[in-house]
Simulated assay, not measured.
Amino acid sequence: MKKSAIAGGCILGLLVIVGAYQGSTVTTDPLTLAEYEKLKAGSSEKTLFSYASTCQQDSEKVAADYPLTWTCYGADGSSSAVFFYSKGVLFSKAQTGLT
């Protein structure tokens, strides 16, 4: 087997391990309804991440003032909340099924 194939296999293996680790950490701190209710208009993105690690960015940051959307998941995996940020400040939110 060539060295490049071995190196490629090792890198692929590391990526799989990292992906599995990230997947496991995502479900360790789900968003609750009580935490959702604490997040008010004007809250920072940093505040959101202090409550939950299950958040995924849904939109890309095109410019500094371009709005960003984050979706965070509840403990059951099907409940969620969507947060809308502009310039790093929460301006709108919605949730479904959080407990």
Score class of each variant (00 low, 15 high):
Ala94Lys: 10
Pro67Ile: 05
Lys3Leu: 15
Leu48Glu: 07
Thr32Phe: 05
Glu45Pro: 02
Cys10Asn: 03
Phe49Met: 07
Gly8Ile: 02
Glu35Ser: 13
Thr32Pro: 05
Gly97His: 03
Lys93Gln: 10
Ala20Asp: 06
Asp65Met: 05
Thr47His: 06
Ser53Met: 11
Gly88Lys: 00
Tyr73His: 11
Leu14Asp: 13
Ser53Glu: 11
Phe91Gln: 00
Lys61Ala: 08
Thr69His: 07
Lys46Thr: 14
Ala81Asn: 09
Cys10Glu: 03
Ala20Cys: 07
Ser78His: 03
Val82Ser: 11
Gly42Ala: 04
Gln56Cys: 00
Thr96Cys: 08
Phe49Ser: 01
Ala81Arg: 10
Asp58Gln: 14
Ala34Leu: 11
Thr25Arg: 15
Lys61Ser: 10
Ser4Ile: 15
Ser79Val: 11
Ser4Arg: 12
Tyr85Gly: 02
Ser43Ala: 15
Thr54Leu: 06
Ser59Phe: 09
Thr27Met: 06
Leu14His: 13
Cys55Ile: 00
Gly74Gln: 05
Leu98Ser: 09
Lys40Glu: 08
Ser24Tyr: 15
Gly97Val: 08
Leu15Val: 13
Gln95Lys: 09
Thr96Lys: 11
Gln22Pro: 03
Gly77Ile: 00
Pro67Cys: 09
Gln22Thr: 15
Glu60Ile: 08
Gln56Asn: 06
Ala52Arg: 09
Lys38Thr: 11
Val89Ile: 11
Ser80His: 12
Gln57Arg: 14
Ser24Leu: 13
Ser92Asn: 10
Gly13Asp: 01
Phe84Gly: 02
Lys87Pro: 02
Trp70Gln: 05
Leu31Ala: 10
Ser44Leu: 12
Ser44Trp: 01
Leu15Pro: 11
Ser44Thr: 15
Tyr36Lys: 04
Ala94Ile: 10
Ile17Lys: 01
Trp70Leu: 06
Ala81Met: 10
Ala41Ser: 12
Ala20Glu: 05
Leu90Asn: 02
Ser43Trp: 00
Thr27Gln: 05
Gly23Thr: 08
Val26His: 15
Gln57His: 06
Val18Ala: 14
Thr69Ile: 11
Gly74Thr: 06
Phe83Gly: 04
Ser78Trp: 03
Leu90Val: 03
Leu14Ile: 15
Ser79Glu: 12
Leu98Asn: 01
Val18Asp: 11
Leu12Arg: 00
Leu48Asn: 07
Thr47Ser: 13
Leu90Ser: 02
Thr28Trp: 09
Glu45Ala: 05
Phe91Pro: 03
Tyr73Arg: 08
Thr32Asn: 04
Gln22Tyr: 14
Leu14Glu: 13
Tyr73Leu: 12
Phe49Tyr: 13
Tyr66Leu: 04
Thr54Gln: 11
Ala94Trp: 07
Ala94Cys: 05
